[in-house]
Design a protein around this nucleic acid. Structure first.
Length: 586
DNA sequence: GCCGTTTTCGGCCCGACTGTTTTCAGTCG
């Protein structure tokens, strides 16, 4: 159990206690402990082993005991008891953006609402607006949020980062089986889609039965919906892993691995289109190969008339296409481009030369600027921008103008002492509700880079929000717009904003839009990023790092960029220090 | 529930934003 998980349970506990109407100071104490744990650098488990838990700010005897309990059992008794006291649906209601414990309580007491279904019904019948401090606007907002919650849980899609981690675990387990030669990703996971419905894997094996057996008995299987043993060396089975995601395993021989991979990677739309291309040439494609229909399959035509391709490149090549990277197989023009030989040379991780959105301990990051510099240097970066929060983001310990000046001095100081990596002094500056920035122009002028972002006032209507962000893009000191739509997986779908207008403003003012690589954001998403490319708007792929491990999230930003057809030239942080300096007008 | 160079009891305490009010409660990051 890591620090973030422990902090999460503590802050959930705080919300449950607030729902129950407990002593506000007790609630605050849980919240304070959770916040303090989130900022810790060392792991709680090692702090515990060293007997230093009580030294953590906000952790006294009682919470210390609870942390200990969590470290051994993954939860604590008082929390489980409290969860059991409150109807499950109410806890779900509190997870809806805009509804906190107090509102949930009023809804429960006055209207008997114990589920999201009840909530939607009450809103539709206009019963919520009659509650104290509620009105038509609140009611509408709640209805909207509740409906979008129902939809998203109906789809039950899993964020890519979670699916990637689970796929890695299953792959490791399978790889230890003597009957499995190799395990490969397929489906939306391989296409690196931002969420996946299930995980598709391929195992290469000459003993499909035994490979499937190994799969069915993998560590955390909670259900096994079925297995289908086909003939000719094929097999397929599905399991539910850890009670939340379905994993499908397809087993086949190495000899036609390429055919299998192509078929199972999809997307469905891509495959349908590819089949049309094949049919026009007299072939049809199957999972196990290319079926011959009246024309000679050159080079590798087995006797049964089915040619299974060992590699995907051979399959695509056979149809006259260049190899298509999985990320763009969505039938959004890639087949035509592949036929004409005008595929983009997609950006890769090695192209990234620096990170332009990084937080240090000066605001809400976990590391010192020196540690960040050292780590980023180790990644081979030429530069990183230290962009701590501005004053309005008070909970994130945003920097006052005075502290910002000290911050700049420390960065200059390290730049003078350190060889190699160059630190850019920056800010993640709040865009206030009226479109003004949180620092004066005089202060912004003194920075190497200004990353602007919306963090509060998320409920503005489309017109105001668009105007607000456009105003920020028109400020001469702003360089980058961070997480442009504000969406967060499982929490909110992003603010209501006219992205086309925002992109036009970015283009007109020569500003950069961010692909935020944080797994819970991925913002811009792939469609927006492609739209930006088509409009000629520059992109930065940043991690929004708050601790050293977050630097690795860059791979998720790259996934988005590749799905958006971005090439190195479309992305500013593929440029070296000198060039980035001129882009940022440093 | 935490904390103490006033205290082991009694005070703690983010600030902006929004929609609801006519002075403020609830939510959020």
């Amino acid at each position: 159990m890591d620090n973030a998980e422990i902090a999460d349970i503590l802050s959930r506990m705080a919300r449950l206690l607030e729902f129950k109407g407990e002593n506000p100071f007790k609630i605050a104490a849980y919240e304070k402990a959770a916040r303090s744990i989130k900022r810790l650098e060392a792991d709680l488990s090692s702090i515990h082993q060293e007997g230093r838990l009580s030294g953590v700010p906000g952790v006294g005897k009682a919470i210390e005991d609870k942390i200990e309990e969590m470290l051994t059992t993954g939860t604590f008794e008082a929390y489980e008891r409290t969860v059991a006291e409150i109807p499950r649906g109410i806890i779900e209601i509190m997870d809806i953006s805009g509804i906190g414990p107090k509102t949930a309580r009023v809804l429960y007491e006055r209207l008997g609402i114990v589920s999201i279904g009840d909530l939607i019904k009450a809103a539709e019948e206009h019963r919520i607006r009659r509650l104290p401090r509620m009105g038509p606007k609140q009611e509408e907002r709640i209805l909207r949020a509740a409906r979008s919650r129902v939809q998203s849980s109906d789809f039950r899609r899993t964020p890519l980062a979670v699916a990637t981690a689970i796929a890695r675990q299953v792959t490791e387990e399978l790889s230890s089986s003597p009957y499995i030669m190799k395990v490969l990703p397929a489906g939306s996971l391989r296409r690196r889609k931002e969420t996946v419905g299930n995980i598709d894997l391929i195992a290469l094996s000459d003993e499909p039965e035994k490979a499937i057996d190994a799969f069915m008995h993998a560590g955390k299987v909670t259900q096994a919906p079925g297995r289908w043993d086909a003939d000719e060396g094929n097999a397929h089975a599905a399991i539910i892993y850890e009670g939340n995601i379905r994993v499908d395993l397809y087993v086949g021989p190495e000899s036609y691995c390429g055919s299998l991979m192509q078929y199972l990677t999809g997307s469905k739309e891509h495959n349908i289109h590819l089949h049309e291309v094949a049919r026009a040439r007299g072939y049809s494609i199957s999972r196990s190969g290319m079926i011959y229909e009246g024309k000679q399959i050159e080079n590798e035509r087995p006797d049964n008339g089915v040619a299974g391709f060992a590699t995907e490149a051979a399959l695509y090549g056979f149809l006259g296409l260049e190899y298509l990277p999985p990320e763009i197989r969505e039938d959004r023009g890639e087949i035509e481009a592949g036929l004409d030989g005008r595929l983009p040379a997609l950006i890769e991780r090695k192209d990234i030369k620096g990170d332009l959105h990084v937080h240090s301990r000066w605001s809400d990051g976990r590391n010192t600027i020196e540690e960040l510099a050292l780590h980023a240097g180790g990644l081979g970066y030429e530069y990183i921008a230290i962009t701590d929060h501005s004053p309005s983001t008070g909970v994130a310990n945003g920097l006052s103008e005075e502290r910002l000046l000290e911050h700049i001095r420390e960065i200059e100081d390290i730049n003078e002492r350190k060889e190699g990596i160059r630190l850019l002094s920056g800010t993640e500056c709040d865009i206030l509700s009226d479109g003004r920035l949180d620092y004066s122009n005089r202060v912004l002028e003194g920075l190497d880079i200004v990353v602007a972002a919306v963090h509060a006032g998320l409920e503005q209507d489309r017109k105001s929000m668009t105007k607000r962000v456009v105003a920020a893009l028109e400020n001469e000191h702003v360089d980058i717009l961070a997480h442009p739509t504000g969406r967060k997986f499982g929490k909110r779908s992003g603010y209501d904003i006219d992205m086309e207008e925002v992109m036009q403003a970015a283009f007109d003012n020569d500003k950069v839009l961010e692909i935020n690589s944080s797994p819970s954001r991925l913002d811009l998403n792939d469609r927006h990023a492609r739209m930006a490319k088509e409009m000629g708007v520059k992109i930065a792929i940043n991690t929004d790092t708050h601790s050293l491990a977050h630097f690795d999230n860059i791979s998720y930003g790259i996934d988005v960029a590749r799905r958006a057809w971005l090439e190195p030239a479309d992305v500013v942080n593929t440029r070296g220090l000198k060039e980035i300096g001129s882009i940022l007008r440093m």
